[in-house]
Design a protein around this nucleic acid. Structure first.
Length: 474
RNA sequence: CGCGGGGUGGAGGAAUGGCACCUCGUCAGGCUCAUAAUCUGAAGGUCCCGGUUCGAAUCCGGGCCCCGCAACCA
């Protein structure tokens, strides 16, 4: 068992503020990070999230708004951070690829790969639409080879000098790496990746000429080039991990990301690390996407929901609870406000909140004292914790709710309200109070604020009832 | 024949050859500590056609339907 763990999310590109789909990933990683902190201790867990800020898109967006790229990315990154904070995500660092330390370390990384002979100069040939001002692949064009959005313009053939990364060199290394069943989770995604490598990789450009893009980290070997945005972005994990003592063999390194990012993280990133002679991550966990009312979340559909809007409506813990229980841990899922409300009422109001309320009331009425006990580390080998090995926070949560349901059953079967014998009453209520005290600990990774509230209500020798934790929604 | 995922009671999800399971909802009953709560019980299901098998949601063939991806949108 490794003693330390580094948990990362993908860093979000700042072309737009993150929405509820991105937020799922942060909450997922946060839940795992909080679990690991309970398990391994705060100092042995490092949790990283942040923003990816370079590239032409941002340079152009800034020009359009008549501000500098830096001003543009500062603004969006700040808004992203606010969204993530609204969900009570306990990152150790919010990294930005424009941070000074990252620039330096990305250049050093690039230099290592260069020294290994894996970066070479060549021509990049591609298609370019002047209307879109972006590169196109053949599949993006219509039958007559024109851009769908600008069919009147002639597609330009671009042939520029770029530095390329010898991705092909690492093909067999990657296949070998993919033999490890824990390298990519869930299982289905690993197989997709194997299939992709088997089709054959192609070396890719890792720099852009400065006369086209200035908003990037300068290539250490050539002041006329900047490092391609994806190459630099991946390095963020190493930037933070290295400086905090989490990029080493004592650390279990886990990346959480969405399915669209799988190829880069599973196939390019390990090849880059290998080339630079650095440690490869242990597990890349790939989750699905969130759909809203059966539709893909997108700007053009105009159906974007921001995390803080949901938090304003339901509260931070209910949103976290919902995402962790019903989020796209493997496959895509569909969410709706009605479903969130339904789950809020059944699991939180009728479930957890009601159980705490009925128990607190009976404990108060009894006038008894309930001694405090502490729970040992053995609780992490119990059934509820098992699914965390595969990051199945949803299954672990179901197991925790089974414990809760057992308490309700126990109350109904023993009818503490009808017990007149004080000793017997104490035995029954003590068991039930202790069970819920334990549950309050187990839910900390999921709904930390509520966990604290329950600990305040029940975590005392003299228990007093209090207002409902989750008032029913009509 | 570009690649891939999927179709399970009213809703959402499990189950990869062996009695179809869970949550929500619905219905009936119990209880009264609790937020119209909670407990017990019940009804209701494997997209269609064919095949393999003692046995198929699961494997094979065909069909219908949904959804992703196609090398920088979690």
């Amino acid at each position: 068992m490794t003693a330390k763990v580094l948990i990362t999310t993908a860093i979000d590109y700042v072309n737009d503020v993150i929405h509820i789909g991105h937020a799922y990933q942060k909450v997922l990683a946060d839940c795992v990070a909080r679990y690991e902190r309970l398990h391994l201790g705060n100092d042995n867990v490092y949790f990283l999230t942040g923003t990816d800020e370079y590239g032409t898109t941002n340079e152009k967006a800034a020009a359009k708004r008549n501000i500098t790229p830096k001003e543009h990315v500062d603004e969006i990154s700040g808004l992203d951070k606010k969204q993530i904070d609204s969900l009570n995500v306990s990152y150790n660092r919010f990294i930005r690829t424009t941070d000074e330390d990252h620039k330096k370390i990305a250049q050093e990384f690039f230099a290592k790969s260069l020294a290994a002979g894996d970066i070479y100069k060549s021509h990049y040939e591609g298609l370019y639409c002047e209307g879109c001002e972006s590169y196109k692949t053949i599949s993006e064009l219509n039958e007559s080879g024109q851009c769908n959005l600008h069919p009147t313009r002639q597609i330009q053939k671009i042939d520029e000098e770029d530095y390329f990364f010898r991705w092909t060199k690492y093909q067999s290394f990657l296949l070998e790496l993919l033999q490890n069943e824990r390298f990519v989770l869930p299982e289905g995604k690993r197989k997709e990746m194997v299939a992709f490598v088997e089709q054959g990789l192609k070396d890719i450009p890792v720099t852009r000429p400065k006369y086209k893009v200035t908003w990037g980290i300068e290539a250490p070997n050539d002041p006329e080039h900047v490092i391609y945005v994806w190459f630099d972005a991946l390095i963020n994990y190493y930037t933070a991990g290295l400086q905090n003592g989490f990029w080493n063999d004592e650390t279990n390194i886990v990346h959480f990301l969405g399915k669209d990012n799988a190829r880069w993280h599973v196939l390019l990133w390990p090849a880059m690390l290998k080339s630079a002679g650095l440690r490869i991550p242990d597990t890349i966990y790939v989750h699905g996407f969130v759909n809203l009312n059966g539709q893909k979340i997108s700007k053009s559909l105009g159906n974007i929901i921001r995390p803080d809007e949901l938090v304003a409506q339901f509260g931070v813990d209910p949103v976290r609870y919902y995402l962790l229980k019903h989020g796209p841990i493997i496959d895509d899922v569909n969410i709706s406000l009605d479903h969130i409300k339904e789950v809020y009422n059944s699991d939180l109001a009728n479930g957890l909140g009601n159980t705490v309320a009925r128990l607190a009331k009976m404990a108060e009425k009894s006038g008894l004292k309930f001694e405090l006990k502490s729970f040992g580390s053995e609780i992490f080998s119990e059934n509820w914790a098992e699914p965390f090995k595969d990051y199945r926070v949803d299954v672990a949560l179901q197991n925790i709710w089974k414990l809760l349901s057992e308490v309700d059953k126990h109350i109904n079967e023993n009818q503490p309200w009808a017990i007149t014998d004080q000793d017997k009453l104490k035995t029954v209520l003590t068991y039930e109070v202790d069970q819920v005290r334990k549950i309050a600990l187990l839910i900390e990774p999921y709904i930390p604020t509520t966990a604290k509230q329950i600990q305040e209500i029940l975590g005392k020798e003299i228990i007093k009832s209090s207002a409902p934790l989750f008032p029913r929604l009509q």
